[in-house]
């Protein structure tokens, strides 16, 4: 059996907003099939790290690679040629936002086929067929002609996941996918992500759902003030963290959730 190859890698990544140095040198690799949970206090840089991968934020220095494509921006900007590479990279990623960010002027199905049709230029019949299957997978086949505004938050987030899957992504990035949801809707979204993990999807998940992270992750990464403070298997990080800060963060969290 061959070893899984690298789906996504981040090396020496730094990012400041003005004088606020948010990421201070991040190295992270996701092999195919890895499910990596990113945890850490609010403001520790989790979202910024995730957003640097598809260049929604442009790193000051560092290298981001997705599959064959690689970018090392300098000075916090992309040249024209780099932007083209960034678009290609985005085409191989799925991104799920905390606030879903569905396109409100398009139906559920239209949201899912939008990029396949207008970015990837796939044939319509093929895109619709694939989108229908994806909506089935997230349990929303019967909502295909509904408008996003008429769905619950949990349903909207599941559509957003189907939209991300329509990218045929090498890796899917989730930024607190359940944080904007009413508590009773969290479960249906976590269930979908769990199923994706079981399929062997490569995922990077920023989350505050510690129980969930422990259960689905192959690795857990704890971020503190723009640095990876602790990383390991869920058993290591949750069971016996080396870092005092990580320990404190976790105990605070589990106390709050009890």
């Amino acid at each position: 059996m061959s070893l899984p190859s690298t789906a996504l890698s981040i090396a020496g990544l730094r990012k400041s907003f003005g004088s606020n140095e948010v990421l201070r040198g991040i190295d992270l690799v996701a092999k195919d099939g890895d499910v990596i949970s990113l945890i850490g206090a609010s403001g520790s840089g989790k979202s910024t790290l995730l957003r640097c991968i598809p260049m929604l934020e442009i790193p000051d220095v560092g290298t981001v690679s997705v599959g064959e494509d690689s970018l090392s921006p300098t000075g916090g900007r992309l040249s024209r040629a780099q932007l083209a590479v960034a678009r290609q990279m985005r085409g191989h990623l799925g991104f799920v936002f905390q606030n879903f960010n569905l396109w409100p002027h398009r139906t559920v199905l239209q949201n899912v086929i939008e990029a396949p049709l207008f970015v990837q230029s796939r044939p319509r019949a093929e895109a619709v067929e694939e989108a229908t299957a994806l909506l089935e997978k997230v349990g929303l086949a019967e909502k295909r002609d509904a408008w996003p505004a008429h769905l619950s938050g949990g349903q909207q987030q599941r559509v957003a996941i189907a939209r991300a899957l329509a990218q045929r992504p090498r890796a899917i990035l989730f930024d607190e996918p359940t944080s904007a949801l009413d508590p009773e809707l969290v479960g249906e979204v976590l269930k979908v992500i769990r199923a994706l993990a079981a399929e062997g999807r490569t995922m990077l998940i920023v989350t505050h759902e510690m129980g969930f992270a422990r259960e689905v992750s192959s690795r857990v990464v704890f971020l503190h003030q723009g640095l990876i403070e602790e990383a390991g298997t869920p058993g290591q990080v949750f069971g016996n963290p080396a870092s005092e800060r990580c320990r404190a963060f976790l105990s605070g969290h589990f106390d709050r959730n009890r």
């Binding site: 598809p54 929604l56 678009r87 290609q88 985005r90 085409g91 990623l93 991104f95 936002f97 606030n99 879903f100 960010n101 569905l102 396109w103 409100p104 002027h105 939008e114 990029a115 207008f118 970015v119 990837q120 939209r163 990218q167």
Partner: peptide, 29 residues
């Protein structure tokens, strides 16, 4: 909404497609 624009950028839309498919239809309303 900024988020809908980011959602367009993150699937790889060019500026032109983003304008035509995401920004203009919403702004016109």
């Amino acid at each position: 909404p900024r988020g809908t624009i980011e959602a367009g950028r993150v699937v790889g839309m060019t500026r032109l497609i983003l304008f035509r498919r995401v920004i203009a239809p919403q702004a016109l309303v």
